[in-house]
Design a protein around this nucleic acid. Structure first.
Lengths: 201, 201, 201, 201
DNA sequence: TATGAATGAGGATTCATTCAT
DNA sequence: AATGAATGAATCCTCATTCAT
């Protein structure tokens, strides 16, 4: 059972085919036969390259989260102020490259399935910790630690909610719209903390 | 094959068992046999009462959404001002009665599955329209129509994100915490609009 | 298990419903539930009146063959010469009362199923012996014994073939047409034997 | 799911096993499991090769009718005069190769089942048209067109009746006997038309 | 008599997986 | 490296049958 990445290009093709199949047929109906057929190869290859269906799906989820992480890294590289960095993270999670139906839908399925699948759950948990850590560390430069914690959860929930929405409907929430909503949230939400006095005062 | 609700009590038992099974085994492994066995009856009954597995799951999703709707109605009944009504809606969606792991997890599965299942999608779509309509109508009494639209999407996304989070981890986000995050969002977010002048000048 | 003909009228209703269901749904899909539902009663009654599905179907086949036998008896009662008697038998088997799609189709199913069902096979065998005996006894008054044997088989095969045809297509072979074919056969076939010398002579 | 005849030999094995199973267990009890088990393979193969049970049965019926057609073609190839051709057709339909219990019984089941199964009905209909057309075209060279039509129906009904008989009883009507009856019919029936004047005067 | 809820065996079918080639 | 035939467990579902009411 050679699991070594002998042929990385081949693996990538399978992973993309898997994501495409989940998007096309749904998680339950994305069978190894269909994934392989859409790729024009035999189903046996999936076991050769990934050890089995679970292996392929884990690789696919890993790939999905890597793409988001990569997008964030790119946007953060050109960001300056803490607020710019925050906007970079949000922007990265909603960029047309990652915030596309196929990705959001597959992510939604992975999140739902991850509950009863340790391997997927681990990936999801690590990713959640990473993004929260990123956001929190930036926020602490702007607001108090307590406020940073709350705001982090709000922001993560908002992003997850937008992804869930995008994954549900074929046409509805375009990246630009989603970004507008998120930026609206961010601007208004941060504005309160920048004020000299509490509004309820 | 009576599809009409002949024996409503029996149907409720099956629906609860279905939700419990999805929570316990996951959507994919919540088979008719397991659901029936956990209830101590024969699998054939599911087809007798619901016409099939899909029928049961549709009824279960319907039940789930009804619970949330019912909770909202109750909380709204005692709410006075528009802001109170808004908090009532948020509070209802995060109350211990509905914001429980079994419900959030099942909801997460339903949302993911609904994409390729017209019957579930319809339920989800109607529910989404209803909650957005509720929130928007209240918000329009506080802020401008444009602001109401944006705020509605932000709030819905936040709630969906919190539900997704609660559905993913067995122990993590308690109803009280989630409510605190949502209220924090609501208070700070509305505060901006209550200010005499925009902070950005 | 009261199998006694307590309520003969009720039994007749079930039998007619069974034949109608076989005609309507086909033998395989004529389930006890469907038969009972079409009659507006509960499926349990079939077991009460007939001991089970097999009992009902045996009764139905018995009824079917009785109808043909009854029709033959009626036609034979008014027949005079041997040739008239022969025509009476043929006419009875193709009369509009018995040579109807529902009967022919059900008969076809019974014949096919009878092979592996002793109870049905016995009925079919007895019926076959009876009709052959009837035809042969009449023929012996017209032709030689050897010729009578051959002609009997030819005539029975012809009638069975016409029934099979009528059972297969919804609209095609009307009783009048079938009767014309059978009479054509009979007249021409008997004509040969009435000739003073063999045609090949 | 390859529907193309990739492995024709394997397909033939399944078809023969299907016919044997229908002969052995009856149509209703010829389950995919039994057919596969009798062949010493797994039931899944039937779906792999034929797409399902229906596909196998359609292929089996097709095979059955092909055999008869093939037999007719062979016999017709060596036939000379119109009457010889007629005898060839009759002889082909009653030859020991095709007029065997397994075939006649399976045919009987197919005919009965074809009523509610479009795919089987189409095969049966096409076959009926072909054989009628063959017989009629030969008969038109011997008798008038009107007589040819009637005689065709008589002959087809006779053959169908003989097949039905052969399919019903395990041992009863041997090919030689059936052929004798059919030839008796043919010779006597044609004799009338060869006479200078009708016997009825 | 009659009902209809409940059963459980048995059906076709799907699918990940294996393995000889 | 790749195929695709073959497997067998597991799934949903159907149905005749039973039985308390």
């Amino acid at each position: 059972m050679p699991v070594q990445p002998i042929n990385l290009i081949r693996r990538e093709e399978f992973i993309e085919a898997a994501i495409a199949s989940i998007h096309k047929y749904g998680f339950h109906d994305a069978t190894v036969n269909r994934i392989a057929r859409d790729l024009g190869v035999s189903a046996g290859n999936i076991h050769y390259y990934f050890g089995g269906k679970d292996g392929l799906f884990e690789a696919a989820m890993h790939r999905l989260l890597s793409r988001i992480r990569h997008e964030s890294a790119q946007q953060l590289a050109i960001a300056g102020s803490p607020e710019d960095r925050l906007r970079a993270i949000v922007s990265a999670n909603l960029s047309p490259q990652v915030f596309q139906p196929a990705f959001c839908r597959t992510w939604l399925h992975f999140v739902a399935e991850s509950i009863h699948r340790p391997a997927l759950q681990r990936l999801q948990r690590v990713n959640g910790m990473r993004i929260r850590s990123n956001i929190r560390s930036v926020l602490r430069k702007i607001v108090t630690s307590a406020q940073a914690n709350a705001l982090t959860e709000e922001l993560v929930a908002l992003l997850d909610g937008l992804w869930a929405h995008r994954g549900q409907v074929d046409e509805g929430l375009e990246p630009a719209e989603a970004l507008a909503f998120a930026m609206s949230f961010l601007n208004h939400r941060l504005a309160v903390h920048r004020l000299p006095s509490s509004p309820a005062g």
